[in-house]
């Protein structure tokens, strides 16, 4: 009786989560294994092996990996510079505020900002041409490409990394560093054997988050490239809007593929985290 009462208190939440998060997702997953008559089939998943779709997954994963790895590295470098690089203390507060803003500055306006900067007539493109005679577009650069998209995604990936890793870096105790030093360790030995292993769970979690963050992003890519760069979310978007694949169930399969990729990325994260956290409570 009493426990029944207790459960009632969380019913609204679970009802909401079921209706608007879990059931819709399950529906897509089930749809991926159904044919148009509602029977079970693996044909949809086989459809994913079409070169066009394999390519789109490949480029999506490549962009997500690249922007997550670079986001982690650059964000880490900037956070480390501020936390332990001997920079004046006042820099931290504005950097954190800016990171809070920039990590949420995604979607359509971000694409506009990069078009205005690195597009064919963008400010940096023009300045490079006028001042240094460098025509980046003649050199093969294109904002509507793998590197262009990665560069754009970094605008929210780096700040996200800074926001998450700065508290973790501040949690490294000065005594750990000093203890390692006095025991004869070099700076790189300290980082390799103490600091990085301690930070590893946070780094890993942030990496998984950054990966999912860019893998599912639609708006920036869509506003930036229209449909010219066929990453998975853009293809799925076009499919939902106008059935460009001529097969609605292939759309479910693609969506299922997306869940599979982010799900596997997070599963890998959970497994590695449990192994890396053996020393934790």
């Amino acid at each position: 009786m009493k426990t029944g009462w207790n459960w009632l208190g969380v019913m609204p939440f679970f009802a909401f989560a079921a209706l608007f998060l879990i059931l819709p997702t399950m529906n897509i997953v089930i749809g991926a294994f159904q044919n148009s008559e509602g029977g079970f089939t693996l044909a949809n998943l086989q459809g994913l092996t079409a070169p066009r779709i394999v390519d789109s997954f490949a480029i999506s994963i490549k962009v997500s990996l690249a922007s997550a790895i670079l986001g982690c590295l650059i964000g880490f470098a900037m956070a480390a510079a501020v936390v332990m690089g001997g920079l004046p203390g006042w820099i931290k507060a504005p950097l954190m505020t800016f990171s809070g803003v920039a990590s949420n500055f995604a979607g359509v306006p971000l694409a506009f900002a990069f078009i205005a900067t690195l597009g064919r007539v963008g400010l940096v493109t023009m300045l490079l041409k006028q001042w240094f005679g460098i025509n980046i577009y003649a050199m093969g650069f294109n904002l509507l490409s793998f590197w262009g998209l990665t560069l754009t995604y970094l605008f929210f990936q780096i700040p996200l990394m800074i926001l998450i890793i700065t508290p973790a870096l501040e949690g490294l105790k000065r005594e750990w560093r000093e203890a390692a030093e006095v025991l004869g360790a070099s700076t790189s030995q300290y980082w390799r054997m103490v600091a990085l292993p301690i930070l590893f769970p946070s780094l890993l979690g942030t990496f998984a988050l950054l990966f999912a963050n860019s893998f599912g992003a639609v708006a920036t890519a869509y506003a930036l490239t229209g449909s010219s760069l066929s990453i998975v979310p853009i293809m799925l978007f076009a499919q939902i809007r106008g059935d460009v694949l001529q097969d609605p169930h292939l759309g479910y399969a693609m969506a299922f593929g997306m869940i599979l990729v982010t799900g596997l990325a997070n599963l890998a994260y959970v497994i590695m985290r449990t192994r890396a956290e053996r020393w934790m409570r």
Partner: peptide, 24 residues
């Protein structure tokens, strides 16, 4: 459990969720 559920929207892409809405 609650924490896990609240984290799901970071893992399941929004486009998949809305696709589910349209179907459901």
């Amino acid at each position: 459990v609650i924490e896990f559920v609240t984290l799901l929207p970071l893992v399941i892409p929004a486009i998949v969720v809305v696709f589910g809405y349209i179907r459901l």
